[in-house]
Design a protein around this nucleic acid. Sequence first.
DNA 1: CGAGTCACTTGCAAAATGATAGTAACGTCG
DNA 2: CGACGTTACTATCATTTTGCAAGTGACTCG
Lengths: 146, 146
Amino acid sequence: MDNEKFSQGPCPVGRALTLVGDAWSMMILRDAGLGTTRFDQFRAGLGIAPNILTRRLAALVEHGLLEKRRYCEQPPRDEYVLTPKGRDFLPVLLAIGAWGRQHCEAPATSTMIDTDTQKPVDPVVIDRLSGRPLAEMSLKLVPPAG
Amino acid sequence: MDNEKFSQGPCPVGRALTLVGDAWSMMILRDAGLGTTRFDQFRAGLGIAPNILTRRLAALVEHGLLEKRRYCEQPPRDEYVLTPKGRDFLPVLLAIGAWGRQHCEAPATSTMIDTDTQKPVDPVVIDRLSGRPLAEMSLKLVPPAG
DNA sequence: CGAGTCACTTGCAAAATGATAGTAACGTCG
DNA sequence: CGACGTTACTATCATTTTGCAAGTGACTCG
């Protein structure tokens, strides 16, 4: 869907989706958030074909969500690490995961726990100002430049 | 990417993405959340080809995010309305939008405002238990079943 | 009757995806 | 020192998906 209409349009959702709006990219970011850094780790963990992985990683690097770093010269070894921009996207993935846990039943489900309290996290999207869950709020769209 | 590996796998993110893990589906849901219900409204608003729209709508209906309702018999007119499952996904889209507003600059940006307070909303993903933003927390993955 | 709206379907070209195989640079074991 | 393994890819090619344009059928409005 990657066209210029959305990448420069007024809707921030559209702009975001031109960068990360495909499943592989999000899965790569998820694994990167869990500590995966190397090409073959991503490949094995996701079961993704190497040519596709190459392209997705390159796109994520180009868009500034990952950084490719040479961490060993001899032999040449690269790692892909999240940039601040990429790290900021992880809460969104956890929100997607929370939705998936609620609405897509499956035999077994992995969970995330807070390492401080050892309790499972339950991601909710709220409004920072009012502190209320967005699901309970009534919202209105305001177009730009008016 | 739609394969059985993820739709039945342990990761709720993967399961969710088999349903909504493409940009068009999310854009359709976004518009549905803003009140769009009819085929040609979606088509015109998104600039999507009609055959693609047909398939995406059918997939979203099949997966239970939208419901197709005949609201007029003569002439036959259908509308697509969000199910509870689909409505629960909207906060995630707003979180994606918040990320997009922060990280993808553009000349002009539309915003959402709270109709109660008339102030712009600022979506953040927090942990329901601790109330803390997930971005500040340190998390650990726990695999299922042992 | 003719034009227009709505919700699509059909046909076909172009692009993306995915499986498999190959490559290049290096390290390690015997 | 030479075979084999590891890492990080590229190349090739079949399959799948996407997207544009045009057409269709049911119906309404003037």
